[in-house]
């Protein structure tokens, strides 16, 4: 983030608490290790050698929802999986975000039928949608960076209202 450039010769930086909290949140986001279908393979590829998501502070995939603050819904969500997905979301500690990865998670994709939720936004609130079937790893990384932009704009006031 280039803090070094802003450091004067006193070694001190002034900023608001909000900025600092948001900055630290964006640089240590722990996604949940949670793959549903084909998109999960591309999510794995995004963490593997060629794309390497850990460049953005996301190398730590957590298997437990209680330790993670980002849920990447990678794949189609069936009617049987819906309640489970919601329970996992409820188990994550606040503040938490959701990325809907792929067409299926965003809108049902090619599977417009009885078995699949037409978008996981029917089950959990979604912050960022990533298009593509499957999205390229670059697209996922772009989605994560878009989420960072969103998180950087968060204010304490919003949180105060939300969690009153």
């Amino acid at each position: 983030m280039g803090v070094e450039q802003k450091l004067g010769n006193m070694g001190v930086v002034t900023t608001t608490l909000e900025n600092m909290v948001n900055w630290s949140r964006t640089n240590a986001m722990w996604p949940m290790l949670f793959g549903l279908a084909c998109c999960a393979i591309e999510m794995m590829a995004a963490q593997a050698s060629d794309y390497d998501m850990s460049r953005f502070g996301m190398e730590l995939m957590r298997a437990s929802p209680r330790q993670s603050d980002l849920m990447i819904v990678a794949g189609r969500c069936s009617k049987k999986m819906g309640p489970v997905l919601r329970r996992l979301y409820d188990q994550m500690p606040e503040p938490k975000w959701v990325i809907a990865m792929g067409d299926c998670a965003s809108c049902g994709g090619v599977f417009n039928n009885y078995a699949i939720f037409q978008g996981v936004d029917e089950v959990v609130p979604v912050d960022v949608y990533v298009a593509g079937c499957p999205p390229r790893p670059e697209a996922l990384i772009h989605g994560v960076l878009t989420l960072y932009e969103k998180v950087k704009g968060d204010t304490f006031k919003e949180y105060a209202v939300k969690y009153k």
Binding site: L36, A37, G75, R76, S78, K79, K80, M81, V84, V110, F111, N112, N113, Y114, A115, I116
Partner: peptide, 11 residues
């Protein structure tokens, strides 16, 4: 099983 049942055959 069935947590990923997609209804491919019907579709």
């Amino acid at each position: 099983i069935g947590y990923l049942h997609t209804g491919v055959e019907k579709n």
